[in-house]
Amino acid sequence: MNQAELILLLVKIWGGVGACVALGFLTFGIDRLDEDARGAYVFRLLIIPGVLLIWPLVLWRWYVLAGGKDLWARRYQPRRNSHRVFALIMPVLIVGIIAVGWSVRQTWPVDVAPVQLSEPGQ
């Protein structure tokens, strides 16, 4: 098996586990955790892709909420302070990446002529 096939196998395993988590979570877990979900079924179809992608996060939140370990204060601590980091790193990276991309860009070397280095048989 080559590396590409290995990566694809891991993706399939990730999705397979996600499908199992989605099945359990959407058929019985969600009703216990979120009263707004009780009796609401159509929206669960929209939730499936999310569970497939981030099932470890789903399992973690499920564990926290089911065990009553959720700290309410955390819900009200916005991420806005860390946002400043993104707002500053992103411009630097954007400019840097474009500059690098442009600097390695080649133009067709039309002036570089082919050269015969030696005659046949030499």
Partner: peptide
């Protein structure tokens, strides 16, 4: 088959 020698090419 006609040999044409050794070349340095660009492209």
């Amino acid at each position: 088959t006609e040999p044409l020698g050794r070349w340095k090419v660009a492209g």
